[in-house]
């Protein structure tokens, strides 16, 4: 069909331009980063969990770590204190007048919990927890909300598969402002 092939020509040209633009360095500043160097920056973990390191932990192992390193700010049972927010509870409150947004009630992916504990907690000594401890603490928090069992082991394979109750609780902000949807840039 001639009509179709004509349409494809500008599309192919655009694709060529895009690759041509993106590939060639022009200024040659900066230095190639070695794999060791990249590792030294720690991990940013996405929902797919691709970056999760080896290691493992269960709620049973997490309980004493929580008591020692987390309870002072987040409360004995995760109920929160003046200095640290609640990290447990809130099930079924999101549609109410007083929504409680804990990891268990609100977060769509368990990877977010792992990643934040790893990089940001405890607040007075961020980055000090081992990978095993972070797996165990994530399991412990999730077990208090009955999302995993006390004996469940979380690791790089099982953590991204944890089914969070609020997994489908988010909608993209499109359209943002209903007056002029056609002109609005659409961000996914």
């Amino acid at each position: 069909m001639r009509w179709n092939s004509n349409l494809l020509v500008p599309v192919a040209a655009l694709a060529l331009c895009a690759t041509g633009l993106a590939q060639t360095p022009r200024y040659n500043f900066g230095r190639a980063a070695t794999p060791e160097e990249i590792r030294s920056y720690g991990v940013l973990v996405g929902p797919a969990g691709k970056e999760l390191p080896p290691g493992r932990g269960s709620a049973k192992e997490g309980a004493p770590i929580y008591a020692q390193k987390c309870a002072a700010c987040h409360g004995k049972n995760g109920e929160g204190t003046k200095v640290g927010p609640d990290v447990v509870g809130g099930k079924g409150t999101l549609a109410s007048a007083h929504p409680v947004r804990t990891p268990g009630s609100f977060f769509p992916y368990a990877t977010t919990i792992w990643s934040y504990i790893k990089s940001g907690m405890p607040a007075n000594k961020p980055g000090s927890l081992s990978d095993d401890e972070v797996y165990a603490l994530t399991a412990y928090l999730l077990s208090l909300d009955e999302i995993v069992k006390e004996s469940d082991v979380l690791d790089a394979q099982s953590l991204p598969k944890v089914r969070m109750p609020n997994r489908n609780g988010f909608v993209p902000t499109v359209p943002v402002w209903p007056e002029a949807p056609a002109q609005r840039r659409q961000y996914p």
Binding site: L94, A95, S96, P99, F106, G169, F170, V171, P172, T173, V176, W177, R185, Y187, P188
Partner: peptide, 14 residues
């Protein structure tokens, strides 16, 4: 208006 759902990746300031 979202009945318990949340908006995310809300970028542009109005």
């Amino acid at each position: 208006n979202l009945q318990g759902k949340a908006r995310w990746f809300h970028f542009e300031m109005p």
